[in-house]
Simulated assay, not measured.
Amino acid sequence: MAKVSREVVEGRPDEIMDACVRLHETMSFRDINLKEISCETSISRPSIYNYFRTKEEIFLGVLEREYRRWNDDLQGILTGHQKMTGDEFAADLAESLRERKLLLEIQSTDLYDIEENSRQESLNDFKEVFMQTMTSMEKLLEKFFPEKSKDERSDFVYQFFPFLYGVYPYVYHTEKQERAMDSVGMKVRKTTIEEMVRMCVLQLLK
């Protein structure tokens, strides 16, 4: 049997998560299973269990990876500016989330099932990264808006992060949802992730 390099072994979690992301582009969360994921990788289904115990745990890994990437973007905003106006901050924050569509989609539609069906240690790892992202947001507010009190910064964070759970459903509607809204005469305002985030940030900064 050919020896598998350490690099290949260490890259397998990302390979599995990448396969899951590709499937998610054309399949619903509920239709994806470990067999489908295995067929998208060079890894056998039994071997996947060495890294992830459930489909939900793979999605949790994807979400954790997305939060790490977003946190890197937030750190870039923090170190890349000495000062920012409210408009500039809102625009940069909105831009940072434009690239995190997958993050917004997963956490708005399937997060409860994902967390409930993942091992405790995996959930702990995710929550640690989530907390780091919240801390980064607090540091941004402290640097660029020093006039705000600690309580005001905390209020911003604890209003902004729950708001993110509703961004994806408001921006992206299924055909079925649009038919239902049309049938009751509900006007649908076309918007984008950037527009929603920018407007929310400006309101919270007031």
Rank of each mutant, 00 (worst) to 15 (best):
D92I: 01
E64H: 08
F89I: 09
D72T: 12
G80F: 03
T85P: 00
T79S: 14
A91H: 10
A91Y: 10
E64C: 06
L63S: 08
D87H: 14
T85E: 06
L78K: 05
K83R: 14
A91Q: 12
L78I: 04
R69H: 10
H81V: 04
G86R: 13
L63G: 07
I77A: 08
F89D: 01
A90M: 03
D92A: 11
D73N: 13
I77Q: 07
M84C: 06
D92F: 10
R68H: 08
L93T: 12
K83I: 13
D73W: 09
R69S: 09
A90F: 00
R68Y: 05
Q82R: 14
F89K: 05
G86S: 11
Y67T: 01
T79F: 11
R68A: 05
I77S: 06
Y67M: 06
Q75C: 10
L93H: 05
H81N: 15
A90W: 02
E88W: 06
G76R: 06
L63M: 07
L74P: 01
L63N: 05
N71P: 04
E64A: 08
K83C: 12
T85H: 06
G86N: 15
L78A: 02
R69Q: 12
W70K: 10
W70P: 01
W70Y: 12
I77K: 01
A90E: 04
H81E: 07
T79L: 09
F89P: 00
A90C: 04
G76E: 03
D72Q: 10
W70I: 06
Q82K: 14
D73R: 12
Q82G: 15
Y67K: 03
I77Y: 02
G76L: 01
K83V: 15
W70M: 09
D92N: 13
E66T: 08
L78S: 02
D87E: 15
D73K: 13
A90N: 05
T79H: 12
D72G: 08
Q75A: 11
G76Y: 00
D92Q: 14
A90I: 02
N71G: 08
L93W: 08
M84E: 03
R68I: 03
Q75V: 13
H81M: 06
E66A: 08
H81C: 05
E66G: 08
R68E: 12
D92R: 13
L63A: 06
W70F: 12
D92G: 13
L78V: 05
G86M: 11
D72C: 02
K83L: 10
D72E: 13
F89G: 01
E64N: 10
F89C: 06
K83P: 04
K83E: 14
A91G: 09
G76V: 03
D72I: 01
E88C: 08
F89S: 04
